[in-house]
């Protein structure tokens, strides 16, 4: 668990981060979103003390971060940055094994851990272990960066625009992988991005920052449904935010029990998002879809009215 209490960072006179309070519970992924220069990276780097905060308190699991030795603290916290920061003169395997080596694990334990992580991140050991960072694609390098951050199995992961430099397809693939990873590992993650769609896809908790302050925080759905200020609304894409909301809700949450008339073509999986359902309706010129499950059995139906929530009582 990470807690920030009225944390301020001043560079000279200017406050880059201005009295923000925030709590990230264990196992939660918290995304910090905002325009460039609003203090996202500064906030992140105060948590592992790459930057010392000027005021307020930062706690990890109830303990003030200043109580730890800097190096000890950082070895307990995974850190991933956009430009990867991989050491160009070390092989992939050696890069990944960095923190375990700092923690003086035995060579055998480091080796097996490195193999385990490379498998976890889809980097075959034989093919990649002895490569150097300049022999990797952007996506592979970023996977190595994530593996390095996870190496000593830290509870906390700080990620600063980790997928920012990747093409859209690779970025989405890595987002999916991170989601799967997180479902298994339950790390406490603070994730900085200025891509709102990325934040909506990944975040349990969304924090919108502007000029060093937190403008609004809550679940993605809360923010989409009730943006607190015009700034948050515009960050969420203005009128487009309705469509973003459809990406967050599953068909199974809105469907009804199956009726008599089943449309064979206009059908959608129960785990699909409402956005995908909407796309099928549009394509098939249908206002009613059959919902099926993994065994291809019809388990319900979804009408356009239900999809847009005419009958929602919230």
């Amino acid at each position: 668990m990470i807690e920030l209490f009225d944390v301020t960072k001043r560079f000279g006179e200017e406050a880059a981060v201005d009295a923000i309070s925030l709590r990230v519970d264990s196992g939660e992924l918290c995304a910090l979103v905002g325009t460039s220069g609003c203090g996202k990276s500064t906030t992140l780097r105060m948590i592992n003390r790459l930057i010392e905060h000027s005021d307020g308190e930062i706690h990890i699991d109830g303990q003030p971060v200043r109580r730890f030795k800097e190096d000890t603290l950082r070895r307990r916290i995974g850190y991933v940055i956009q430009s990867t920061g991989l050491f160009p003169h070390w092989t992939v395997a050696r890069n990944i094994g960095l923190v375990p080596r700092l923690l003086k694990w035995s060579p055998e334990r480091i080796e097996s851990r490195v193999e385990e992580l490379m498998t976890l991140l889809g980097l075959p050991h034989e093919a990649f272990a002895d490569k150097y960072p300049d022999q990797l694609s952007g996506g592979q390098a970023q996977r190595v960066g994530v593996a390095r951050a996870l190496a000593a199995d830290p509870d906390i992961l700080l990620m600063d625009e980790p997928f920012g430099a990747l093409d859209p397809i690779t970025r989405e693939a890595l987002q999916d992988e991170l989601r799967e990873l997180q479902a298994r590992l339950h790390k406490t993650i603070v994730f900085v991005t200025h891509d709102m769609d990325e934040a909506l896809r990944l975040a349990d908790k969304l924090v919108v920052m502007d000029a060093g302050r937190i403008v609004q925080q809550g679940t993605p759905l809360e923010l989409l449904r009730e943006p607190a200020t015009p700034f948050v609304e515009s960050m969420l894409g203005g009128d487009d935010r309705g469509l973003k909301e459809t990406s967050l809700v599953r068909v199974s949450e809105r469907m009804q029990p199956p009726g008599q008339t089943l449309n064979a073509k206009a059908r959608v999986h129960r785990d699909a998002t409402l956005r995908q359902a909407l796309a099928v309706m549009f394509r098939e010129h249908a206002d009613q879809l059959t919902v099926f499950d993994d065994e291809d059995r019809p388990v319900g139906e979804l009408s356009l009215q239900r999809l847009v929530g005419v009958t929602r009582h919230e």
Partner: peptide
């Protein structure tokens, strides 16, 4: 930054 961030 990465080197320091990793706790070296």
């Amino acid at each position: 930054e990465a080197a320091r961030g990793m706790g070296m």
